[in-house]
Simulated scan of single mutants.
Amino acid sequence: MKNEQGFTLIEMMIVLLVISVLLFIAIPNVAKQSNNINSKGCDAFKHMVEGQVQAFRIDQKKYPTSIKEMVDQGYLRSNETACPNGSEIEIGSNGEVKIKGG
């Protein structure tokens, strides 16, 4: 009689069950943390734009009227006009930076 070593079907199914349970536990936590990271990234982005608005005001002696004006003047890059979560930013007449929808 041969001595065959290996996993039985039942053992493989138990391993797959354990892995599936771990995935069901882990995936919602990862998704929740991703939203939290995007929210914090948006807050940090807003603070960075506020700093650039102040630099614009110091250099130009006025507040910028739009994000486009800041991009055109070189204070922001063209890919720096939205938060990591996709929310757009806008600049008020007094230089206040706001997140649209946030």
Rank of each mutant, 00 (worst) to 15 (best):
S66T: 14
D43Q: 14
G74S: 09
V49S: 00
K100I: 01
I99K: 10
P64R: 00
S20G: 13
K98N: 13
E80V: 12
I27F: 15
K32Q: 12
A82D: 15
L9H: 04
I27L: 15
D59F: 02
K32C: 07
S87Y: 10
E88F: 04
K62H: 09
K68C: 00
K98M: 13
G41F: 10
E80D: 13
N35C: 04
S39C: 05
D72L: 02
N79K: 09
D72G: 06
I67G: 00
M70K: 01
V30S: 09
S66G: 06
I14H: 07
I27D: 14
G95V: 08
P64K: 00
I14S: 14
D59E: 12
P84V: 11
L9P: 00
N94W: 10
L9Q: 05
L17N: 14
G6D: 07
K98P: 11
I19T: 07
N36C: 06
R57A: 13
F7M: 11
F7P: 01
R57Q: 14
E50A: 04
Q73N: 15
P84H: 07
Q73F: 14
S34D: 05
N35V: 11
S34N: 11
M12E: 09
K2V: 11
V97D: 07
G51K: 06
V53L: 01
D43C: 01
T81C: 05
D43G: 06
N29W: 08
M12V: 02
P28F: 09
K2M: 13
P28L: 13
G102K: 06
Y63E: 05
E69H: 02
G74R: 02
A44P: 02
A82F: 02
N79R: 09
V18E: 02
V53N: 00
N3F: 14
E96L: 08
V71E: 07
E50T: 01
I25H: 03
Q54Y: 08
I89A: 08
L23Y: 12
K46M: 06
L76P: 06
M48S: 05
K100A: 09
L22G: 09
V97S: 08
Y75E: 09
M48I: 00
G74H: 05
G86P: 10
A55M: 01
I99W: 15
N35P: 03
V71P: 06
V21W: 05
E50Y: 01
K46T: 04
S93Q: 06
L9V: 11
N38D: 12
K61T: 07
D59G: 03
P64G: 02
E90I: 07
L22Q: 09
I25P: 02
K32R: 14
E88N: 15
P28Y: 08
G6Q: 08
K40L: 02
M48L: 11
M1D: 15
Y75A: 05
G41V: 04
L16N: 10
I19W: 12
K40V: 11
N85V: 12
K98G: 03
Q52G: 01
F56H: 00
E50C: 00
K100H: 04
I19N: 05
M13Y: 15
I19H: 11
E11T: 05
S87F: 14
V97H: 02
A26E: 10
I91W: 01
E11M: 06
N38V: 04
E50D: 04
I58C: 04
Q60S: 04
A44G: 04
